[in-house]
Simulated scan of single mutants.
Amino acid sequence: MPTVVVSGGSGAVGKATISLLRKHESPVYNIISIGTKLNPEANHNILVSADDSIESQGEKVIQQAGLLLKEGEKFDAIICVAGGFAGGNAASDGFLASAAFNLNKSLNPALIASHLAAKYLKEGGLITLTGTANLTSTPGYIGYGVAKAGIHHLVRSLASPGSGLPKDAKVVSLSPAAIDTPANRQSNMPALIPLNAITQRLLDWTTGAIPVPHGKIVEVVVENNEPTWKVL
């Protein structure tokens, strides 16, 4: 039974991803959720505290993930969909707190997932990280932009020789614009990407139904009411 790790498994995208993996019949997946809350659909949960440092969270994830693997086993895929958003420009009173929030919610989980992949992903396995579409300057939400730019850099670095990933491992960034989640609907954000379009693409990459564009940033936006995909 192939094993898939979903980091951010207690968030909206993570829950939907795990639900889709759970429904998949061939193969049947053994699912490990990493998150701040339990996901009852996962076979196993690794709980982390958002208040802990990246070192503390990473040590816990690595230790508990290793205990869930039998001797000789490796993970088939690691899907990191952890994220969050806080705005603020450099003059904002809460600028540094906003920046710390974005790093803790987005970039730090991606770094932990990368370290986990280096230790426990099988050769030829898959790691997906979550960037953002149309990333240029973000003057009104600088911390968020820095975190997502860091993920894009991380993907390209992991795809380069000497990154520490296992032989023939694939890495890709799924980088959507705003996704149709409860929080984004409440914010009245326009042109939301259907959540099932995101989770289906993650499943298709995991199963091999669609080739993985190794080392690439795959942007997803809505055009003419349909999600469109662009490989950068």
Results as ranks from 00 to 15, higher is better:
11 G>A: 03
13 V>D: 01
16 A>G: 05
17 T>V: 06
21 L>N: 00
23 K>P: 01
24 H>D: 01
25 E>W: 03
27 P>W: 11
28 V>C: 10
29 Y>L: 10
33 S>E: 01
34 I>H: 00
34 I>L: 10
36 T>N: 01
37 K>F: 02
38 L>Q: 14
41 E>F: 10
43 N>S: 15
43 N>Y: 11
44 H>E: 15
46 I>P: 05
48 V>M: 00
50 A>K: 10
50 A>G: 14
57 Q>W: 02
63 Q>F: 06
63 Q>W: 07
65 A>P: 02
67 L>F: 13
70 K>C: 08
73 E>V: 08
81 V>N: 09
82 A>T: 04
82 A>E: 02
83 G>N: 08
87 G>D: 12
88 G>A: 11
88 G>R: 10
89 N>L: 14
91 A>E: 15
92 S>W: 11
93 D>M: 08
96 L>A: 14
97 A>D: 14
99 A>R: 14
100 A>H: 12
100 A>I: 09
100 A>F: 03
101 F>G: 11
102 N>R: 08
103 L>K: 08
103 L>A: 13
104 N>H: 09
105 K>A: 14
106 S>P: 10
109 P>C: 04
110 A>P: 09
112 I>W: 03
112 I>A: 05
112 I>P: 09
113 A>W: 09
114 S>Q: 08
117 A>R: 06
120 Y>N: 05
122 K>C: 03
124 G>T: 05
126 L>R: 02
126 L>A: 07
126 L>F: 01
128 T>R: 07
128 T>P: 00
